[in-house]
Design a protein around this nucleic acid. Structure first.
Lengths: 237, 237
DNA sequence: GGAGGCGTGTTCTATATTCGAACAAGCCGT
DNA sequence: ACGGCTTGTTCGAATATAGAACACGCCTCC
């Protein structure tokens, strides 16, 4: 097979296909047969078979009772290593905020043009536990944490298609020091987020989501800012 | 390079090396230079470079401010797809248990001979928030969730080197329906775990950890068993 | 009972892909 | 300016991979 993109950038075809298997499996949200995987990758079955064997050897995929393929638990162990020090320092703070304010509190980081939740802590009787599971992704242009991160970036690296309203909102967030969202990602949910910059690490944010809160946005933001400072100082940045 | 294991099992060398990069990075718990990665893999620098480029294209690794390599946030998104339905159904139950009993509650699954935490919910003011982060791994022979999972397996698939004491404890757990641990994984912490079997999926467990609890082990186990049943029924198995 | 579909797993050779050396170039300290 | 440390690029050789064809087990449906 001829490399498709082979103009300037050398890349490993085999590795890329292996990773695409993981992406396809994550996208499918359920087990897939080898043939289905091969069809989605547009490769021969024997190729998919050999790649899957290798992935299975490393625990990145597993087989269910029917012999079909699904993502392996080892991936969770790998993901725990993402921004390890940041997660370790943030988790106690997330827990404290969730407890103090009675809301879901989470840590999100920038990934290309998306905002990915790394850690999340729910208060007792969370309103929507599934909403902010680790791994949740949203475009950086939607939601409080995305806008908080956007307020850290120079406009030159903003994604294309940012509306004037959003731009105004982000500059507003930059001056206030926090971003909010209302009915933006999940209906009837509100969120408050503050940016978090740690030395040598990409832009991040800590945020809370809730249906209703006894506190004002400013009070919540002040609490989050305190935690963000604590995390930043713990990591020496 | 000659394939080392090439007796009966064909495997992809390139993909395997790419995955080993991720393992090395997770193990290092911090950013690594390309040369360091190449040295640990025992491959030429240019090989590591091309593999890293591919991993970076897919967002599985990123570069920090100094140009060094670390695990990418996209991994967290992939990990969210591991046992997706199980995690989705379990999370509300974990939250309820953590709130009701005031202890950390988590979901763990079997991965080869290890027990991997997938989801975890902390109560307010958790005693040791870092202990049960998603991705935490322990040998299946240590800790309450491991022993609960062990009690589901036939002795033929037990790991080698199970002591008579452990065997007795596991059979005891099988009859009682729950396993416990005390000072076993983390000093001065106790844990209670119940096994969780879902149709077409590998053995799992839900568990709690605490320094002290107002409830007896049996009461906690009964509460966990209720949640396990609810999860199992929600997944139709 | 046997044909036929659908699934996994194996073997094989040509060739495209990968390997790995040698080279180029930036950055920072002394 | 000089070494030492990086990252990034080029290119031929050769090896690991791609993909076809085949073998097998397990269903269903005629």
């Amino acid at each position: 097979m001829t490399r498709l993109e082979g103009t300037t950038a050398p890349a490993s075809q085999t590795l890329s296909r292996g990773i695409r298997i993981l992406e396809v499996l994550a996208d499918a949200r359920g087990p897939l047969s080898i043939d289905e995987i091969a069809a989605r990758l547009e490769v021969h079955r024997s190729v998919a078979y050999r790649l899957l064997r290798t992935l299975e050897d490393h625990g990145l995929v597993e087989r269910d009772a029917a012999g079909r393929i699904e993502l392996g638990a080892r991936l969770a162990a790998l993901a725990a290593g993402v921004a390890h020090d940041l997660q370790a320092e943030a988790l106690p703070e997330l827990t404290a905020v969730a407890g103090d304010l009675g809301v879901t509190c989470f840590l999100a980081v920038l990934d290309h043009e998306e905002c990915v939740t790394l850690s999340s802590v729910e208060p007792r009787h969370a309103v929507n536990p599934v909403a902010q599971r680790p791994g949740t992704r949203h475009p950086i242009t939607r939601g409080a944490p995305g806008k908080a991160i956007l307020s850290l970036l120079p406009t030159s690296s903003w994604p294309s298609g940012v509306s004037p309203e959003l731009a105004a909102e982000v500059t507003d967030a930059a001056t206030r020091g926090f971003a909010t969202s209302h009915d933006e990602v999940i209906p009837s949910l509100r969120a408050v987020a503050v940016p978090l910059v740690v030395r040598g690490r990409g832009p991040a944010a800590i945020a809370v989501v809730f249906v209703a809160s006894a506190h004002s946005d400013e009070e919540i933001a002040a609490r989050l800012t305190r935690s963000a400072s604590a995390i930043r100082e713990a990591l020496g940045g």
